[in-house]
Design a protein around this nucleic acid. Structure first.
Lengths: 339, 339
DNA sequence: ACACGTCGGATAACCGGTTCAGGTGGAGGT
DNA sequence: ACCTCCACCTGAACCGGTTATCCGACGTGT
């Protein structure tokens, strides 16, 4: 039951290990006839190159790493990660690269995982997600010399290659759209304030509201769960000067907001318009369907993987800006007060 | 920037590589004083064992593999996978095992991935999900001699160790609960009919209905998407003898069904009761909240990982049955016709 | 003084590939 | 007939660890 090695092939073909190595790697040094014989034998006995032996010769590990730092419940409800992973995979598997995944509980542990992976020679590079301000992972990775791409805004990625989309522009478009519908008081139910993209969206939201002369806009931060989304919504619509539109940072919170509205006898969109970020199928199965800001997330992941592979190959990689989220108007938004 | 090796440590300590190896692995053969010196140097220069070099000595790769075969959109909406992965991770990372993940498009490709991983010595074992009837992956893995745990019913796992939960019992409990509420016509919106657990739930559903003397029960198969869930619901409630209760195979379809009911002016639960399988946060944010069959999925994943690690360690592993899904009644179920 | 056992450590070989520096034989040029 | 060149192939070393074997020094008992 032992796995066959090139020595086995060499014995059967009556040549040296070296000839086999050259033949199987399509390198010059063996005649075509021999190459064919050797390849045939390799195929017959089901030989596979031992990745450890290859990696030992300074070669690539042919694997990249991804760590995710969120509790299981939140992770499950965020289509973002799985779609991102799907996209990354599509690019990696085409080149027979493996993806190492680790779910961690904090940034310290995450840096430790990178150190270990890199030190053990398990990965050739990593993809960073959920970028924070003054993110300790960035200098840690820089110090290791570990190739990496960061999914996040270039302003905070240091010397690492960023892959990002312009959330500010998408947010501006959304606010303008709501203002055009006649909304004057808009609120935002945001995600974790420690994340860069949350703050950038916050700023864009505030700036857009100010520019358009909208007063009384407010931002509430949450942990992305439906419960907090519901609580934030309840708080917002119970206020004296309640908003006529709310923009949520993910769709599970938007759905929770929709339920709260219905529970409080508010008509959507007449009394309250709702917009969700991240247009997953969920947005379309509720009634009314949610107006949402959608991106092609698998494509986003594929882009990140492509950049990382280029980086690993030694190419010079500058940042990549992917498409801006598209606003898809559906039934959850309309003119305020209009029934 | 070269990574330090035990040879570097040996040079600094003035001993041979072997002494360093013994010292760092806490094996007899070096004096305590030397051991301490060597460990101190290793720590100082940030040495990490090269996993490739270790794996080359017939040692474990210290990694397990998981492949997932679903399109990105479905994958994103299924909290199941991410929660499962979280659970698997919790067990693996405690023992410094890595998880290799691959998203594939078909069973043929999946078997190929296993062959490659095992042949390349990248993994010590794999976890199989989404078990089919006559699943080609089972004999493929058996032929490879690759340690594996299958998440699925023991009847179809061949010689591989199953980790499963009794879906039949959960289904029976659900049907009995609905019957007790007074429902006489119950329908089931199921997942992919090729999956073992779908069919087992189908059978349990039919058997339970028959036993309780419920007539006109029907089963509709879908691909787990919200759209198909909505379509199936529309079809069911438009039929002459429409059911008063529907049991869905996941919660996104149940939410879609809820929307369809509202859109068709059916009162939930008075006109139609709904039950969702897999109790994710989604079930609780919609109104009415969904009665759901929940399991501790991270725990399920952890169990699978534990079994696999035991198997890899050479222990004899029999199957593990995890807890049966618990029915949590919420607002979406009630007596039929009762307003 | 000698045989014996034990401890600490070194040397060499090995895992399965890759790389580099030769070494052979036949074809071609002069 | 001799030299050169090239295509083809091999031996040896190497990557970074682990393992088997062996050796010398020291302590002990008699």
């Amino acid at each position: 039951m032992k796995r066959p090695t090139i020595a086995d092939i060499a014995r059967r073909a009556g040549v040296s290990k070296v000839a086999v190595s050259y033949a199987l790697n399509d390198r010059p040094g063996v005649s075509e006839a021999r190459r064919d014989t050797i390849k045939a034998i390799a195929k017959e006995i089901g030989w596979q190159p031992n990745s450890a032996a290859r990696a030992l010769n300074g070669a690539r590990a042919r694997a990249v790493g991804l760590t995710v730092c969120r509790p299981a419940r939140v992770l499950g409800m965020e289509p973002f990660f799985m779609e991102l992973i799907s996209g990354i995979e599509s690019e990696l598997s085409a080149r027979s690269y493996a993806l190492l995944l680790q779910v961690v509980t904090g940034h310290a542990q995450e840096a430790e995982v990178y150190r270990r992976w890199w030190g053990e020679g398990r990965v050739d590079g990593v993809i960073l997600v959920d970028l924070h301000f003054d993110d300790p992972r960035v200098p840690a990775i820089e110090a290791l010399g570990l190739p990496a791409v960061v999914i996040g805004h270039p302003s905070e990625t240091g010397s690492l290659a960023p892959v990002w989309s312009d959330d500010g522009a998408a947010m501006r478009e959304t606010v303008e759209y709501l203002a055009a519908l006649g909304h004057r008081r808009i609120a935002r139910v945001a995600g974790l304030p420690a994340l860069v993209h949350t703050v950038l969206r916050d700023r864009a939201f505030t700036a857009a509201c100010d520019e358009l002369g909208l007063t009384g806009h407010s931002v509430v931060h949450t942990d992305y769960t439906g419960e907090e989304g519901a609580r934030a919504t309840r708080r917002l619509v119970s206020a004296a000067n309640r908003p006529t539109a709310i923009v949520y940072d993910n769709d599970i919170m938007a759905v929770a907001g929709l339920s709260v509205a219905q529970e409080m006898r508010l008509e959507v969109p007449a009394d309250l318009s709702l917009v969700a970020w991240d247009d997953s199928p969920l947005s379309q199965v509720v009634r009314p369907a949610l107006t949402a800001l959608g991106r092609d997330i698998p494509h986003y992941g594929a882009q990140a993987a492509r950049s990382l592979l280029a980086l690993i190959a030694g190419e010079h990689v500058t940042g990549v800006r992917t498409e801006t989220a598209r606003l898809t108007p559906r039934g959850s938004t309309g003119a305020p007060g209009h029934r």
